[in-house]
Nucleic acid binder design. Structure first.
Lengths: 217, 217
DNA sequence: TTTTTATATTAGGCATACCTATTTTAACGA
DNA sequence: TCGTTAAAATAGGTATGCCTAATATAAAAA
């Protein structure tokens, strides 16, 4: 049985792209707020358990089994987020931390019943796609809002889920999944964008815009 | 912050009566399925943290703070049990183990919203009373079904929550909270009872009957 | 090619929460 | 009162998952 800590590593590796290509130890350490030696050690253990492949100095990559485990955890996380917002009435900036704990104590049976109760949601409240119970996930082709040219419009697909202050800011702007946003202007040198959401125009820092993923209209 | 393990000890001590009088180390060890030395050690730590008073060879008792913590955990446990049965449709024999894990990862905010969503339930599915958010609990005066004389009737108040097979057996008998049961006969020497539930008569082992708590009618 | 620098690993420790084996305590019966 | 016994304490050890400090590696710059 995978420990809570193991699940957190698998989830982080997956989200940082380690299901595709070797992920640097330092990147993982940064994300999990632990030291590099701790990550090295865990990488070795994940490899021992067949959940990751790991070559010293080369980084860590999930095996098929590791990916499946990671997606199961991510599915539980996103189901709980939906429950917390849709059923208990939490705002989308409150639910990530709660779900981070609930995801590790959820049996497959509770996962299944929860999904039924929520009527099989297709995304989390931040727009990220829901992996299926079979461990598949379909990620829609997306580009950052910052990549749009002036005059182009996009539909928001997803936003970062773990940044509380940014989520509160995006709430104020109305920048949530399904919202339509038009880029009116882009300042050079990765400068701020001017975007229109509904009838309102807003300046938007490039750094923020680069984290809002959209589908081009 | 109390660890998960700490919470489990507090909960077990409370349920075994250690909120009233010193509880023997061996009783706690048996309940938690750990060795006596492990319990001794944790008893000392609980005392250090001000959650229990502990005198070697005398047993362990919860302090006011320890009781409050224990009741908070028990409240979360019972709220999750209600959620799992009432909202997700689990049977009452499936929910204890799930709730045992969920109870340790539930913030006060989730606890509060969950209670609201469930419309402030007064008991768990097994009939045990719900502690309030303020850490108070009212336990109705009860006696075991085995203490009734032939001819006496009682209303089931609560049954053991953690014994899966017994709960399945009680389901078949219809012996659930609020059910009325009449004792028709009691065999001597702690022998089986004959009880009537609705129109049906059933033999009932004394050991089982002693764990069904009722209010005399 | 050699040196520098960033990154990662190894070495050695710590806290938690368990364990078994051994010793101590307390209570009870002879 | 003394010896026996059951319960609980201490002693010493393990695995997990962290840490810091020191060392090794690999990649980039000189």
């Amino acid at each position: 049985m995978a420990t809570q800590s193991t699940e957190e590593y698998l989830e982080a590796i997956y989200k940082l792209g380690g299901e595709r290509e070797p992920l640097a130890i330092s990147v993982l350490a940064e994300r999990l707020s632990v030291s590099s030696p701790s990550v090295s050690e865990m990488a070795r253990k994940l490899a021992e358990q067949g959940l990751a492949s790991y070559e010293p100095y080369k980084g860590v990559t999930l095996t098929a089994e590791g990916q499946a485990r990671a997606l199961a955890v991510i599915r539980r996380h996103r189901l709980w987020e939906r429950f917390l917002t849709d059923t208990l009435g939490f705002s989308w900036d409150q639910v990530h931390d709660e779900a981070c704990r609930l995801e590790h104590v959820t049996s497959p049976l509770v996962e299944e019943r929860l999904a039924e109760f929520l009527e099989t949601p297709q995304t989390c409240p931040h727009g990220h796609p829901m992996p299926t119970a079979q461990g598949k996930v379909t990620v829609e082709a997306a580009r950052p809002l910052s990549a749009l040219e002036p005059g182009q419009r996009g539909v928001v697909l997803w936003v970062p889920e773990e940044k509380v202050e940014m989520l509160q800011y995006l709430t104020a702007l109305g920048l949530k999944p399904q919202a339509t946003v038009q880029v009116e202007a882009v300042a050079p040198f990765q400068g701020p964008l001017t975007v229109r959401i509904g009838e309102a125009w807003h300046p938007l820092g490039w750094e923020v815009a680069s984290q809002i993923m959209v589908r081009l209209l």
